[in-house]
Amino acid sequence: MILSVRDLTVTFRTEEGPVRAIDGVSFDVAEGEILGVVGESGSGKTVSLLAVMGLITDPNAIIGGSIRYRGTELVGLPARALRKLRGAEIAMIFQDPMTALTPVYTIGWQIAEQIRAHQKISARAAMDRAEELLAEVNFPNPREALSRYPHQLSGGMRQRAVIAMALSCNPALLVADEPTTALDVTVQAGILDLVRRLRDRHGSAVVFITHDMGVVSELADRVMVMYAGRIVEKGARSELFGDPLHPYTRALMGSIPPLTGERPRRLPAIPGSPPSLLRLPQGCSFAPRCPVRFEACEARPALPAGARAAACFRVEEFQS
């Protein structure tokens, strides 16, 4: 396992009391695998991965549990050691590429700097390497792009530049947080292709966070579905989408209008909206919106161990 997360909890102290954004999340990422993390806003998908990257700097955040990267415990690791790991071995890309780019330097300069921060090579060699990387992420004219500033590029091209930066040190693990959400579908298709190629060529493991089930279904090997700070279902891609077990997963899949075939007269919508983390229900957090809830749901269902599981008391009834 390249990454092992056990019982991760992230709690924020707020004026309205403690908010548990992540509640006992455990998962593994194997070398070279693409793990898709799906969830809606507030599901904790981003916070859990920020915690893994050691990027939660809020002094009001309390992080508990264990995060092991290739055997090294990351929780409590000094910032310096963590920083060495990030960039060199773990790379991250975000929804907005401008969070990773500075507007005042050229693309070439920024990629070369990233390379030189982690490798001892000359400025010239770093610039050549930057050009190679831009070519690898399909910049039409990589040499020319080196001297471009971020504002001169389109959103899709900026995201490619950030991916080139992430690739610069051949990361063993890439964490991608909604990297295609702000992009048009035709551009998204290119970026997804790139992520897949990165895994195929360099053997990098990828954790891909998104709200789009279609994206996960096309990209991931394994999927976990999050709701209100917990994992509600996990499994291999084909199993999870072929035979979803948790009522939330089923409802979420049902509420996406089909792209082909018969149009339903009405979409099977999920009533209500995702709960506020300040006022989480006592038991199963999906219970208030769940079509199959019953008395037992007033207690909290645990997520069973194993590769394929759902945190629901009625799972057996749904298993086919």
């Binding site: 579908v185 035709t186 279609g214 096309e218 084909s238």
Partner: peptide
Amino acid sequence: AVPVVTTDAGGARRQRILL
């Protein structure tokens, strides 16, 4: 280019036209 959820267990990915 629209990514769709493939429910079939085989999970055949659709042919995409990349622009």
